[in-house]
Simulated scan of single mutants.
Amino acid sequence: MINFELWDTLLRQYVDRQGRVNYLAWKTEQPQVLADWLESQKNLPLKSNSNALEQLALWINLYNAFTISSILETYPLDSILPKIFGVPNWLAFLWFFQRRVYDIFGQRYSLAQIENQILRDELQEPRIHFAIVCASVGCPLLRSGAYFPEQVIQQLDEDAHRFINNPQKVRYDSHSQTLYCNKIFKWYRQDFLKVAPSIPEYIGSYLKIDVPLTATTPISYLDYDWSLNQRIS
């Protein structure tokens, strides 16, 4: 199985406590380290008897490492949503997630395949939506460290608390009694409803407010920010 100590070291070096990535420093100082490390791992055998915690840590780390490696290849860029003459190029955007270009365990995977077929369908842990990153401001903030099997449940719980208690992702307006939340809760609604009766009740189990959220709490989804999640230093 893969040793993620190098990935952990890189994250601690280039990701701050707000989850922002210093791509400029990373690409300037160690432009090929991550790509070379991923290349060196591609023919390792997939451990057939690994448990769910090992699988969770493994595939979350790989998803994020593949994503960040792809961003480093094309950096500098302002957004992960490319535009042609100011018009969003959704085909190129979708291709970024659908292309099977990531070699690991003797196979080629796409980001969508890792997310949907492995993390969602096989492992069925909705908190992965607060952990895997598409590198945009709207998606979960990158953790400044790797995931490890013995810690992954605690790490995912921390990620859920951080995401849901970030007013840029989720907030409750007491005047309008409306719950404003990130579109991740809309796109992956069925994943959250596997463990909670409603989206407001799922959010309410993490959100630090005095008002109880119920299935009848109105929801309004926030605009999604596709600009690159980066730190300029």
Rank of each mutant, 00 (worst) to 15 (best):
I2L: 04
E5T: 15
D8W: 13
D8L: 05
T9A: 15
T9R: 11
T9Y: 12
L11Y: 11
L11I: 12
Q13A: 13
Y14M: 14
V15W: 13
V21K: 05
W26S: 02
K27E: 06
E29H: 05
P31Q: 01
P31L: 02
Q32N: 09
L34M: 10
W37D: 09
W37N: 11
K42Y: 09
K42L: 10
L44K: 14
S50V: 08
S50Y: 02
S50C: 08
Q55F: 02
L58Q: 01
W59S: 00
W59I: 05
W59Q: 04
I60M: 07
I60C: 04
Y63A: 10
N64T: 14
F66A: 08
I68Q: 06
L72G: 12
L72N: 03
E73S: 12
Y75E: 00
I80M: 00
K83S: 08
K83N: 08
I84R: 10
P88V: 01
L91I: 15
A92H: 03
L94F: 07
L94D: 13
L94R: 11
W95F: 00
F96G: 05
Q98Y: 08
Y102F: 12
D103M: 05
I104M: 13
Q107V: 12
Q107N: 14
Y109L: 09
Y109H: 15
Y109R: 10
A112N: 15
Q113V: 04
I114A: 02
E115H: 06
N116K: 11
N116T: 11
Q117D: 15
L119R: 12
R120G: 05
I132F: 02
V133D: 02
C134V: 09
C134W: 03
S136G: 13
V137C: 14
G138Q: 03
G138M: 08
P140M: 09
P140N: 14
L142T: 15
L142I: 15
A146Y: 14
Y147V: 03
E150F: 04
V152E: 06
Q154K: 03
Q154V: 05
Q155C: 06
D157W: 15
E158Q: 13
A160V: 14
R162S: 07
I164K: 06
K169L: 01
Y172M: 02
D173V: 03
H175D: 11
H175E: 05
H175V: 11
H175Y: 02
S176E: 14
Q177S: 07
Y180G: 00
C181T: 13
K183S: 02
K186Y: 03
W187G: 00
Q190W: 04
V195L: 05
E201Q: 09
S205C: 03
S205A: 13
L207K: 13
L207H: 12
K208S: 13
I209M: 07
I209E: 08
A215H: 05
P218L: 09
I219E: 08
L222R: 05
D223G: 15
D223R: 13
Y224S: 00
W226K: 00
N229T: 06
R231Y: 06
I232L: 15
I232M: 14
